Computed example of a mutant assay.
Amino acid sequence: MANYKQLERLERIVHLLSWKSIISKKELIEELLGRFEIQISERSLERDFKILKESFSLDINYNHQKNGYELEKDERLLSRFFKFAELNSLAKVYEDGLKNYSEFEKWIIPDDSSKLNGIENINTIVKALNLRLKLKFNKVDFFSDEILVRTVTPLRLKEYLNRWYLIAIKDGTNEIRNYGIERMSNLEMLKEPGIEIKSFTNQLIRYNDIVGINYSDDYFSKPVKIVCKTFDNQHKYLATLPLHHSQEISYLENKTEAIVSFFLQPNHEFLMQLLGINENIVVMEPVELREVMKTKLNKTLNHYK
């Protein structure tokens, strides 16, 4: 896998290819030097193209008719690559910042709600995921503050709202659980192999159908199409920060309004996201979800009486 410096260069290459529909090697090398002060040879550039293909499934092809290179724009793959590059960049910034805090403080304004608690646990968790070994840790119960000991088979790491969660199977259960890494302590990787996870594939797939980390059948037992109408240019914000990968936007004659649709299983986190948009969004379909939203809004209004 590419190191910090190489991944930064790969990200710049992909950005240039995204900005320009077609570009020659010579132009790409000149742009890297002129815009980013990155010096690279044609041979190194070819190696980077190969890494982007083999490691990130990003295809860069030569167009003989236009005499230049073009990036095959798969939005899902590009989004995944840029997210990985963003995390890499953030890790590098924080690493450098820890070595030189005065420089770190000059450029970074961290969100007060995101103190990166538990970030030191990620390395051990990733190692256990790669080696398919169990993890043991102490967990503080969210409601009682009781300290509980957990031994789990790790499945995935998931980020949501600036927090990281371990998706895992607790020993002695057959259900996937989520553990906030900021509430873990005394984390250790055991030498004991994790349990067979094939039977949990269907549970893992369900994460694709939700917003956040908690799936439930409280509102619907399966994914449904949800149609919303947005106002006051809210669709522009949703376009830059989608609530879910299934999100689609249809523009209306009134340019400040739009129809935004999703295909997902509504859960608490999704409803909280919609409620957070306040008066600038309304659920049109399905009727059942529209009624749920009306009930929640009425309860909120009653608190103000």
Results as ranks from 00 to 15, higher is better:
M272W: 08
I167C: 07
K53Y: 12
Q265L: 14
E192T: 09
L28Y: 00
G34R: 15
E285H: 05
S44L: 08
L241S: 11
A258E: 01
I259F: 06
V283S: 02
N130P: 08
S44I: 06
I226C: 03
S221F: 12
M293L: 07
Y62C: 02
M272Q: 09
N178G: 05
K198G: 06
E75R: 11
I29S: 01
E146P: 09
L32N: 03
E30A: 12
Q65E: 14
T201L: 11
I259P: 02
L133H: 08
D59L: 10
N202E: 12
V227K: 09
E37I: 12
E291Y: 07
S113P: 10
T153W: 04
E72R: 12
Y219S: 06
P154F: 03
L157F: 06
Q203P: 01
D96H: 14
Q39G: 13
I13F: 04
K92N: 14
R43Y: 03
L204D: 01
K294P: 04
E288S: 08
S221P: 10
I29M: 04
E54L: 09
D74K: 07
I13L: 05
V292K: 05
K225C: 07
E54Y: 07
W19H: 15
L77H: 02
I176F: 01
D74C: 07
D209K: 01
R9F: 08
S18C: 14
Q65A: 15
D209P: 00
D209H: 05
I213R: 00
L238S: 04
Y62G: 00
K229I: 08
G180K: 06
D145L: 13
E285K: 07
L17N: 00
L155Q: 05
L32Y: 05
R43E: 04
E269K: 05
V211A: 00
Y69S: 00
D145N: 15
K66W: 12
D48Y: 06
D74I: 06
E257G: 04
K73L: 10
N254H: 07
E279C: 09
H235Y: 11
D96V: 12
D171E: 14
K305A: 13
Y251R: 09
K294S: 09
I13M: 02
K127L: 12
L161W: 11
P110E: 08
E291P: 02
S144G: 09
L271I: 08
Y94T: 10
K222G: 09
K50Q: 15
D59Q: 13
N121Q: 08
P110H: 09
M184S: 01
N278V: 11
F137Q: 04
E120H: 08
S246M: 04
I23A: 03
I169V: 15
N63P: 05
G172W: 04
L241N: 13
Y207R: 00
